[in-house]
């Protein structure tokens, strides 16, 4: 009996150290990676220019859609913009831009200045809609397929590596 208690105490501590040791090399920052593989929940995004509304059904028409959240006041959005322009040339991919907590004039100016990579453009003035996508800061981008399943989430500005990753996926058909 005493032996069992003693060895289980020792084992417990070894287990704790093992966990501590493992946790040392882990990323402690929050991430939304677990959303990958889930389907998007229902959303209603107002169009930027017109009166129509974008829903999940619209995305099912496309092979792949990249949903990009951006604003004219967001400096990193400027950084990732050239990459979006590059992606807009891809045939298998549609880009849905969501203008986030922005003023219409500033946003239009931003696109006139740097070019418009978006096939569709929606707006989210209050930021409430973005919660449906699990967004917590911008820029963020979500790559979905024609079943609106999330293939990848990009937090922060897109870079060269991300672009190549997206190209690999959409051209693998």
């Amino acid at each position: 009996m005493q032996k069992i208690i003693r060895s289980s105490i020792v084992l417990l501590f070894i287990f704790v150290f093992f966990v501590f040791y493992n946790s040392l090399n882990r990323e402690t920052n929050y991430s939304t990676d677990y959303l990958v593989g889930k389907k998007l929940t229902k959303f209603n995004l107002k169009s930027f220019h017109e009166k129509n509304i974008y829903t999940n059904e619209d995305l099912k028409k496309n092979d792949y859609t990249l949903i990009n959240f951006w604003a004219s006041w967001c400096a990193p959005c400027r950084v990732e913009h050239p990459y979006l322009m590059q992606l807009s040339k891809e045939k298998n991919l549609k880009i849905l831009g969501v203008n986030f907590k922005d003023k219409k004039i500033n946003a239009s100016k931003f696109l006139n200045e740097l070019g418009n990579p978006y096939n569709d453009l929606a707006k989210d003035m209050t930021g409430k809609q973005s919660v449906n996508f699990g967004i917590y800061g911008i820029p963020e981008s979500i790559l979905v397929n024609n079943e609106t399943m999330i293939l990848k989430k990009f937090i922060g500005p897109l870079n060269n590596q991300d672009i190549n990753y997206i190209k690999d996926i959409i051209n693998s058909l």
Binding site: T126, G127, K128, V131, Y136, G137
Partner: peptide
């Protein structure tokens, strides 16, 4: 923060 303000609105809704 921006995020907290948005979330408060969503909770209210």
């Amino acid at each position: 923060s921006d995020f907290a303000l948005t979330l408060k609105m969503v909770v209210k809704d």
